[in-house]
Amino acid sequence: MKVRYTFFIIALVAMLALAACATPTAAPQPTAAPAQATAAPAGKPFRIAVVMPSAANDLAFSQSMIDALGELQKEMGKDKLEFVYSENMFNVTDAATAIRDYATKGYDLILAHGSQYGASVQDIAPDFPNTAFAWGTAVDTFKEKGVNNVFAYTVASDQGGYVEGVIGAKLSKSKVLGALGPIPAGDGQLTIKGFEAGAQATDPNVKVQTTFTNSFSDVALMSQAAQTQIASGADVLTGTSQSVVGAVSVAKDKGALWFGNQSDQASLAPEIVVASQVYDWTVALKDMMAKINGGTRGGEVFIMTFANKGLVMVYNPAYKLPDDVKALADKTVAGLADGSIQTGIK
């Protein structure tokens, strides 16, 4: 188990490791605005340990959590917040060992950042009733099974996908868009369904092609899927998982546009990445920390949305988005945040 104490200056994505972030594909409902994070009582730093399935700099799911922890630590100070992590824990048995090891070391909050870890959390948490655990993306806290010290967190990623679809429909010349994912489940599928809904709400004549590779880490498969999509006429693509580096490379070579998800992916190809839907987990983390310090160690679900700013559209400054399209995108984000626009994803 490799544990690193730090938050990183994020480098270009590592092309390895299996990740999974599957959740029920129904669009989640909003979470209230976050509380202010507070340090642990008696002047001690609040200590968080993270177990995650892929590399800390994957420019996708794992990095989204590391970025959030880094920002939170910057806000609070290293004397108020400490965090460690174990990356590339794609083997669930190894991840469970890491989770249990962190629990024995007395961390205030242990994040099992991947829904493949749910069974492990359910099994381990009762052995450490004074430790808070959280896992995601997920909506089950196991409270109905008698477990009282587990939080769950997830994202309404259909909202970001919807905005990307709106923009994509406006930018596409071929009126064919492509969406790539690892498996038809979880936040990845929500993103793709939202993308399709947003595109077709903007232009009913737009066609959205969808491909699932059945792998979170196979860069070659994602590359092949992107090549097939583009050969079939797609000039705008989106996708999820750390394997999208392959798709972005193909899009760059073929001159197709790309929309990122989970983390800001503009650095992969600044000339073609239009925008990214970014998961800002600080919203959930602040709430969890406040509740833990108040004596609540689990039993609640935190859902990231545009309304609570757990979802953020990050536009690539290197890509010149037409003013009218940017205005439409901003209007769509505002509408999704206040409820006047619905993705229609259930």
Results as ranks from 00 to 15, higher is better:
A27W: 03
V312M: 10
S120G: 02
P129L: 10
I292T: 08
A17D: 08
A284F: 02
V219A: 04
A32W: 07
I345G: 03
A33Y: 00
G160Q: 12
K207I: 07
R4W: 11
T211Q: 06
D323L: 15
A60L: 02
M89N: 04
T305P: 01
K44I: 06
S243M: 12
E271Y: 15
L69M: 14
D324P: 05
Q342C: 04
T305E: 06
A199T: 07
D140H: 05
V13T: 06
V312T: 14
V13K: 03
P317A: 14
F302V: 02
V92I: 15
I272K: 11
I110D: 05
V50R: 03
A327M: 12
P204G: 00
D140Q: 09
V13W: 00
D58E: 14
D235W: 14
D218N: 14
C21F: 10
D253S: 14
R4C: 05
K291A: 08
A40L: 06
M289V: 04
V166M: 07
A226Q: 06
T305K: 03
V51D: 02
K309L: 01
Q29D: 06
M288A: 08
I124F: 14
P270F: 11
V248H: 05
E196T: 12
G298F: 14
W281M: 01
K143L: 13
L12S: 06
S241T: 09
G188I: 02
N261D: 06
E71H: 13
S241P: 02
G233S: 08
I48G: 03
A156M: 12
L311V: 05
A307G: 05
G77C: 08
G299I: 14
G335R: 13
A95M: 00
A185Y: 11
V139I: 13
F7L: 02
A327T: 15
I66W: 06
A290W: 08
L321A: 08
G161W: 01
V176S: 05
S243D: 00
A60G: 08
G168T: 11
A329P: 13
A334D: 01
G114T: 10
P182L: 08
A17S: 09
T343S: 06
Q29E: 13
L257M: 11
G146Y: 15
N148S: 12
T343V: 12
A125E: 01
V283G: 01
I183A: 07
V176Y: 14
A234M: 10
L18K: 00
A26I: 02
D123M: 10
G136N: 07
D79K: 14
I9E: 00
G188D: 12
A35E: 09
G165V: 06
A19H: 01
Y315A: 09
A138I: 05
Q29K: 11
Y315T: 10
